[in-house]
Nucleic acid binder design. Structure first.
Lengths: 233, 233
DNA sequence: TCGATTTGCAGAACACTGTTCTAGCAATAG
DNA sequence: CTATTGCTAGAACAGTGTTCTGCAAATCGA
């Protein structure tokens, strides 16, 4: 519960007439922190400027002194989050596991903030932390023996895969929250399909349905690293 | 320009009193067609129920007789679009190029409808055409010698990659439309970075900036197929 | 210490969004 | 010829991001 100084009108006999105390001014950091908490609790759709303002004990219009709009707010949140991921110094012998671990870390961090990853799909991150991440990640790839051009392209491809995987995972979790029988319904739907129209699909029902989100992520990781490894001379 | 029968009030001396002609009823197909045209012309954000209704010469509330909501409308649009992609019969000798061609087709079709791919990230497609696509695509992979489990996982991974690539490509194009100097500004930004903080990044500036969207897509395709090929016994 | 400027925010307003509800007309069925 | 059904208009609800005006408090300069 936030105390707002405007809850009651100032009585005219107030001893502090004309000296109403003012709340500590906000900061971009405070906005980012509270916005992240809202997303963590209720998802990206629940993050509106009015909701954020309310939780800060402020009117929505007041936020625009600190942030040019919602887009910039999302940028700040993504920078804050991506700064949590650490990239080790290159060890050429184990570059594949190193890259995998870094991407797993990014996946965990993104996934721990609900569907925030959806916002990451829209903008190219150009913050200092994102650049440091990219710089060190490319260093890992080059230490592994990848040609520079391939390393540069991979620096785009790999985070793209992680981001969309985290996003889809969060969407699936969100759906399961709302309708807990979604998985069963999809399974039933598949079982009821006419086998003659989808012969290959039907012969793989078990394999298709048994894949948790994390298993799919690990598989994608594996395929990508194996594919990149074929570029090492 | 759509003629609306309610443009003028019916004069009381009308010879067709009480027999006002009625427009041909709408169909889900008509909604889908017009909605796709709106997205093609002005992007996914421009597709609102009111705008769609207006272009159909109808009130927004009338659309809900045909569609349960905007989500279902997006589903219909995606089904219509994905039905355009054809998958050839398996040719085990050339499975890699076959899979690549299919994914290229999907990329082209999605990319030809602006940022519609963004809507595809949110929902698992379960329409007949999507299932046929999946069925035949998995058949290609299995014909290539991939283990069933790997083929099933790849059937998820590959379209995911295509979709997010098409989406990011459309966002980039959209940005270039609004601010034509965006590319130059990013290049200038990179050039102005302190080389001592981002040594690896700076040594690759040319490689990082010279990659068109399609080249990045082709690279990702290559990496994925190479990685999958390593699973062939 | 007094006045001027800047800062930080409130409140109202604008132009939208998806969706639901009520009511009534048009075509169809009994 | 009446009753039912299908289709749609119009209003309304509860939100959304953003901008503008105005005012009070804090800060700065003299």
């Amino acid at each position: 519960m936030v105390f707002m100084s405007s809850e009651l009108p100032e009585p005219p006999w107030s001893s502090r007439r004309g000296r109403r105390p003012r709340r500590e001014p906000l900061t971009r950091e405070a906005l980012t922190t509270v916005a992240l908490r809202i997303v963590d609790e209720d998802g990206l759709d629940a993050l509106s400027m009015r909701r954020l303002a309310q939780e800060l004990g402020v009117q929505a219009s007041g936020l625009y002194t600190y942030v040019s709009g919602k887009a910039e707010l999302l940028q700040l949140m993504l920078e804050r989050v991506s700064a949590e991921v650490e990239v080790p110094d290159p060890d050429p012998e184990h570059w594949q596991e190193q890259v995998k671990d870094v991407l797993r870390g990014l996946y965990r961090v993104l996934g721990s903030h609900r569907d925030l990853a959806g916002a990451a799909l829209a903008n190219i991150p150009l913050s200092a932390s994102a650049l440091t991440f990219a710089d060190r990640a490319i260093a890992l790839l080059i230490a592994g023996g990848l040609p520079p051009k391939v390393a540069a392209l991979a620096a785009d491809l790999l985070p793209q895969f992680v981001t969309v995987s985290a996003y889809e995972g969060s969407l699936f979790a969100q759906r399961l929250e709302r309708e807990p029988d979604y998985f069963d319904r999809v399974t039933a739907f598949f079982s009821a399909l006419p086998p003659e129209r989808f012969p290959t699909l039907m012969s793989l029902t078990d394999e298709l349905m048994s894949n948790e989100g994390d298993e799919r992520f690990e598989f994608g990781l594996d395929v990508l690293i194996r594919g990149l490894a074929t570029f090492v001379p």
